[in-house]
Design a protein around this nucleic acid. Sequence first.
DNA 1: AATGAATGAGATTTCATTCAT
DNA 2: TATGAATGAAATCTCATTCAT
Lengths: 223, 223, 223, 223
Amino acid sequence: MKKTKTSVVAESNALSKTALRRQREREHRYESILTVAEILFAREGYLQASMEKIADSAEVSVGTLYFYFKNKEDILVRLLDKISFELRELLGSEFRKADFSLDGIKRAGQFFFEEFCIKHPEKLTIIFKESMGKSAMVEEYRKQIFDRLISDVQEALMRLSENRGLKYQSSLSPELMAVSILGMYERIAYHFLIGQDRSKELKTISKDTVAFIMGGINNLCRQ
Amino acid sequence: MKKTKTSVVAESNALSKTALRRQREREHRYESILTVAEILFAREGYLQASMEKIADSAEVSVGTLYFYFKNKEDILVRLLDKISFELRELLGSEFRKADFSLDGIKRAGQFFFEEFCIKHPEKLTIIFKESMGKSAMVEEYRKQIFDRLISDVQEALMRLSENRGLKYQSSLSPELMAVSILGMYERIAYHFLIGQDRSKELKTISKDTVAFIMGGINNLCRQ
Amino acid sequence: MKKTKTSVVAESNALSKTALRRQREREHRYESILTVAEILFAREGYLQASMEKIADSAEVSVGTLYFYFKNKEDILVRLLDKISFELRELLGSEFRKADFSLDGIKRAGQFFFEEFCIKHPEKLTIIFKESMGKSAMVEEYRKQIFDRLISDVQEALMRLSENRGLKYQSSLSPELMAVSILGMYERIAYHFLIGQDRSKELKTISKDTVAFIMGGINNLCRQ
Amino acid sequence: MKKTKTSVVAESNALSKTALRRQREREHRYESILTVAEILFAREGYLQASMEKIADSAEVSVGTLYFYFKNKEDILVRLLDKISFELRELLGSEFRKADFSLDGIKRAGQFFFEEFCIKHPEKLTIIFKESMGKSAMVEEYRKQIFDRLISDVQEALMRLSENRGLKYQSSLSPELMAVSILGMYERIAYHFLIGQDRSKELKTISKDTVAFIMGGINNLCRQ
DNA sequence: AATGAATGAGATTTCATTCAT
DNA sequence: TATGAATGAAATCTCATTCAT
């Protein structure tokens, strides 16, 4: 959110009561716009979700949208930020919990399906579909986000191999595996959960996915 | 393209010389518009490539565009059709050449990168980026195309297991593997070839990808 | 129809067999285009009925349309011509049969409903609706046609009064009555036959209409 | 016009000063666009009067047109609404003033010519010409408007007969008479005032028209 | 005479963004 | 801060008409 004059001006570094309330309200409004945009972008598509529709749904005026965000692209980009942050948190925490063991991969996979895809299909739609092919700027942003996700996974894979005393076939292998794994999860989520609803088979999907990945990983390792 | 009235009078069922020439010219123009659109959609993006720009590039009038295609969406959809047809042909022929052996998977993967991605990056951009999040209709079309690709791969995997006298862990496994493999290829192509140009590492990319897949497949098999 | 070179050149004033056949074919085609246009203009509206649709329905090419007619407006205008000619013939013949008596008015009214409206609702739609508000030129043409119809009716009314030894209140009366009667028939046809289908009540409609007109006429007469 | 969100916060249910002013301005602009459109539709025709021309004449941007009206058709339909409302008010008030006597018919007729046709020829042109044959939707709207006018007149006629202690020949008679009378007025106005300018003869026209109608009505009555 | 592909002007419509209040 | 009316550029699409064959 934009730094507002008031917050900077505030005497000492404590904010007055009114200023505090104002800031809370501002943040609340900022979040509620993002939430509304998330739903609309996912449901109607980024292009069809006009600024007017967003404003109406968020129960603010169009002008207010432009107070909180530079422009429409900016809303999308902030949303991508938020979603990718949540996703990285979710996956990272599972990996850490499992101490970067093979089990971490399993748990992260399960969590991706069960906690992220099933519970927040809109978020999925936005990072994997609605943010594509919109503009050079968004594309660039998306790339950064995905690169960060990829390097997260890559790092996890490298720690994993260290833990197990193994090395990867080539220096490229961890990166390629990270990209592959993300690609798999993306398409699997899309195919089984968004395109059609086969969430009942989720257990099998999850198990097979992890098995496939394990096989792949092992095949790219040597002692 | 509009169907031409087949002349009732015409002797035998052959078209007259003029009609034949006209048809040839029509088909040629149709193709050349598609080619131009492919380049423009990939280079500038589907949204930025206006009908006027396409017409200018193809050296025809806007009206002519609408003579050959119902509307802009239609151009994209025909393009998707053409690209997905080429892709299926390419992959299918490699599988068949290798008689649905493990080698077929290797060859198909190599061909995808070397013959398709490197030689036709615009096609890649269009099926994996520019056709996303455009409209409900295009989305539907994309789904059909991908479903067909998935069932192609799925079938190849099933033949493969038959040849090797193996069974998959669950009845879902072949479908999941097909989706996974396509997802991998999509993201790998996007990451290493569209987002950045690392075509020099293509050999390693290709080898590692296949190795990963092989490991995955084996892990989902039992005797 | 345009006079063609061939017909003028023909030796003596008899046309050769081939030329005769050709002329018959030309006339037939001209008529069939008009017939098709009549249906399309009435069913889809003049604006929605594109030249291509007309050509397709008439099983000729768009170019042929322009051989037989100067432009789209010309088709409408020729159609108006044809329809108004048929209408005048129909009404005029009834008047003449009844020797311009009061009975003629009755018969003409009945015939308008039964022979014209019921049997040719498209013609009704075209003269009373689809030819309105199209262009200055068509408007002008329509005016001429209606003026002719009005003066037909006006003349019939004047003969009628002569026959009965009566005079009209003012010199304007016959014109006003003619206009009124046409207006009545137009709206009645529209209200009871086009807008809704109450053709079962046609007998009553017809009788009441004539009664209303008779009353009106008598009220504008003096001895 | 778009409904404005009624502020929940606003004390009592009165709008704030600014909101009130805005609403006044909005209504004023809405009306001025309608006025301009009325003139343009009548002068140049609905089709020729492009949205750009209307915007220019109203001294607003094209976008503003679409802020106040859904589309071009909507302008026409609102205009029809307004005009038909005025017309019904005018005629209804004359009838009421004359207490649904025969004199009411006379007065309503006179007023139609003198107050409506002469003073607002554009309105006349729009309901009787420019709104015809435009689109299915406008047609439907027109039908509703005319049906309401017809039932107004029908009711007036029935009250009239009650007042005079008379009955109509058939149950259909009042409806038929209403349709007839409106058809007469429409055509008379069109013939004498739109097609040509014979407003000088208006007195005679008016007198003869009423006389014709009176004769008609009496002829469809019995004691 | 007949064809039908090509034209291109013109119309409607959308919508992100601005700005006075 | 918040509002929402106003803007206008840009895009899509239609279709009467032409003309080479």
